[in-house]
Every structure is written in C-alpha cells, then in structure tokens.
C-alpha cells in the first residue's frame, strides 16, 4: 500500500514538473500580451498584469500596414493574418487533393513503383535552405517572387510527403473488397471514390488538411525567402518585428504570438488522435 502511494507521488511530481515547463512559456506570452508597456520588463517580473489591457491586441489588429519609423514601429497584423490564412489554406487544399489521390493510386495499383512514397519523402528531408538559394533566382525570372502563387506552389510540394504518408495510413484501412463490391454493383471508378472511399476517409482528410495547414501556417524560412512585402505571413512579420526593433515591443509581439498560436492549438487538439498517424509513416500497430 505504502509503495503504491510512493509511486503515485513520484509520478505526479515528475509530471507536474513537466507541466510547469510546458505551461510557463505559454502563460508568459499571454501574460505579457495583456500588459502595458511599463510592465513588460520589471524586476521582479510581474506574473500578473497589474492593469490588464487589451491595447496590444487593439494595436496589432487595427487595419492598415506596418509602419517602420526610427527606432519604433507600429505593427499591424490583419494583412499578414490574411496572407497566412490564404497561403496555408490554398496550399493545404491542393496538397490534400493531389496527395490523397496519389496515395490512393499507389495503395491500390502500386503506381509509380514500390519506392514512390519513399522518394517523395526526400522532398521533406531536404533542408529548405538548400532550395532557398536557387528558388530566389528562379522565381525572379518567373516573376513569382513575393506572390501568393509562388509561395503556395512551394508549400504544396513540401506538404505532399506528409499528405501522402498520412493518407496512406487511412486509405489502407479501407478494405478493398468494399470497392470491388461497389464496382461489381455497377459503380464507375469515380463513383467508387465519391460513394465509398471518400465517406470512409473523410476524418482522415480533415485531419490531414488541418495538419498540413498548421505546418504551412508555421513555416518561416521559405516564406522569408520567397516573399517579402506584397505577401507577408505571420512568422515573417514576427521575425521582421524582432530584427528591426531592437527596443523590443514585447506586448504587441506577445499579442501576435497569441493570435498566431491559439487558433492553431485549437485545431491541433481537434485532430490530436490523427496526428500520430501523420507522423507514424505506417509504422503503428493497430
């Protein structure tokens, strides 16, 4: 009996310690985002804003574009929010459509050969900095630099490996006899896809979409390379803010962080169960 108490105690002590490690940074960001500028840096630091304020949020969420002035800037994120939302959504939609069709074709017909999904995976393994240099030159020649289309095309390609592998796990769960049955009963191949495969993998499609969306929403390096002023996603904006402003506008920056993070965290928890499949590369026992 005593031993069991001890085990429980140690277990909770360790887990609570990691809980603190996990939560403090997130809490600190939220905390700072509600503080007036006078409270951003103090000793001892304030764990609660003495006069909570929404002015940081108000500032970054007012319409208009970011203004850089000597030593100070006023940051506006409505445009970056829209840019991030648009590029992440468009690239995720196309990547999911193409990637799941490809995964289906490979799973059912072995199209492209045994190693196709593995070779696609190398796209993901390549550090983005490697493609950044030639892409700059390439995109300048094609007039794709600093455009939505340019960024979205690259995001589609870098998302494809995850879409293919994640959807493979879901598609392999659909018994092929169901498809044979539908075909014998008179369904065309396209009808089989819409009436049988699609309804049975819809949760996988949603999860994959959200996952890829998060991936592209968070991407910094390629966005930094391929876009600049016309298109400017949230991570780039945050980076610009950090490097331009040595004085560090902690409050508005924390507000941007919170705005960029919270919706994604909410989505992430929604697809928590499916997230594993995406990372498992078909290596999980059922």
């Amino acid at each position: 009996m005593k031993r069991r108490w001890l085990v429980a105690f140690v277990r909770h002590a360790i887990l609570l310690a990691w809980t603190a490690v996990t939560l403090i940074p997130v809490y600190w960001m939220l905390n700072t985002s509600f503080k007036h500028s006078g409270e951003w840096v103090t000793w001892p630091p304030h764990w609660f804003p003495e006069q909570p304020t929404l002015e940081n949020y108000a500032q970054v969420l007012t319409p208009g574009s970011t203004i850089f002035e000597l030593g100070r800037q006023t940051l506006k994120v409505l445009k970056p929010l829209w840019d991030s939302l648009f590029t992440a959504t468009a690239s995720a939609l196309v990547a999911v459509a193409l990637g799941s069709a490809l995964a289906y074709s490979w799973a059912r017909f072995g199209t492209g050969g045994k190693n196709y999904p593995y070779s696609v995976l190398t796209i993901r393994m390549l550090p983005p900095i490697v493609i950044a240099v030639p892409f700059l030159v390439y995109y300048v020649s094609l007039h794709l630099l600093d455009t939505y289309a340019g960024l979205i095309l690259v995001y589609i390609a870098t998302s494809l490996p995850y879409v293919i592998w994640m959807m493979l796990a879901f598609i392999e769960d659909v018994p092929s006899e169901l498809e044979s049955a539908a075909r014998v009963m008179g369904a065309s191949r396209f009808r089989v896809l819409s009436s049988v495969v699609l309804p049975l993998t819809v949760s996988g499609l949603v999860a994959t979409f959200l996952f890829v969306f998060i991936l592209n929403w968070s991407e910094l390096l390629l966005a930094l390379t391929l876009t600049n002023t016309q298109v400017s996603t949230i991570p780039i904006t945050l980076n610009k803010f950090q490097s331009v402003n040595e004085g560090r506008d902690y409050g508005p920056q924390a507000a941007i962080g919170a705005i960029a993070t919270l919706p994604v965290v909410a989505l992430g928890f929604l697809i928590q169960k499916h997230l594993v499949k995406g990372f498992s590369f078909g290596l999980l026992r059922k």
Binding site: E177, L178, A182, R183, V184, S188, L200
Partner: peptide, 20 residues
C-alpha cells in the same frame, strides 16, 4: 468489359457491406 458492365451479383468473403 468493366465490372459494372457485366451485370453480375457478387457476395464477398468479408461481405463488404458499406459501413457508412
């Protein structure tokens, strides 16, 4: 011919009822 043009009825080992 494609399976759908053969007008055959087939019952599968797993029965293949559509779960949805």
């Amino acid at each position: 011919r494609e399976p759908r043009d053969r007008q055959l009825g087939m019952v599968f080992q797993s029965l293949a009822l559509f779960p949805h």
